[in-house]
């Protein structure tokens, strides 16, 4: 505490294998940092839980709502009437996330059939592709994507496959 008494040995080195100790004051900035973090911790905790009433579940809902406001979901009628090119653009990302495991990033197939050749097992029209994606082909391991993706995303990914795979 007393600045004038810097570097005064405590005289205990005989009890510490010859190691001497000073009893210098705690650096003011260090003490200030300690007090500041404690104050911050209390303020943050009280604010988060009791003032702002935040929770991770609430924050998530808010984030999703903000995203929905920024990128509003088009209604089905608009989707149906939409430009296939725009749909396909959006469908690409869905395909890359969900489909490449079986159909490959180049749509050349693998576990699932090739989507770029002329052969369409279940039909190659946009409507037929949409149906296959929606209902799946359970006996072949093709998942029923309708409930997972929803009609809008199915329309998008179908448009992408139809365009990129050369559907009829």
């Amino acid at each position: 505490m007393s600045r004038e008494k810097q570097d005064v040995p405590m005289g205990h080195s005989d009890e510490a294998d010859g190691i001497e100790e000073y009893d210098n004051a705690l650096p003011a900035w260090w003490l200030g940092l300690f007090y500041f973090t404690i104050a911050w911790a209390v303020v943050y905790g009280v604010h988060y839980h009791f003032v702002a009433g935040r929770s991770q579940a609430g924050d998530y809902v808010a984030e999703v709502q903000a995203a929905e406001a920024r990128w509003p979901a088009p209604d089905p009628a608009t989707v149906a009437a939409a430009d296939p090119k725009v749909l396909a653009e959006a469908g690409k990302a869905i395909y890359m996330t969900n489909c490449i495991g079986c159909h490959g990033p180049e749509l050349k197939g693998g576990i699932g059939p090739n989507l770029t050749d002329a052969e369409w097992i279940h039909g190659g029209s946009l409507a037929e592709i949409t149906t296959v994606i929606t209902n799946g082909v359970p006996e072949k391991g093709m998942l029923t994507w309708g409930p997972i993706l929803g009609p809008e995303k199915v329309a998008q990914v179908a448009a992408f496959i139809h365009a990129a795979g050369g559907g009829q």
Partner: peptide, 21 residues
């Protein structure tokens, strides 16, 4: 769970790059 068919997992464990280049 339910994301991929069983055969996907079979192929993936046998050779991960066959399903995930």
């Amino acid at each position: 769970g339910g994301k991929y068919p069983d055969v996907w997992h079979y192929e993936h464990m046998k050779d991960p790059r066959s399903t995930s280049p």
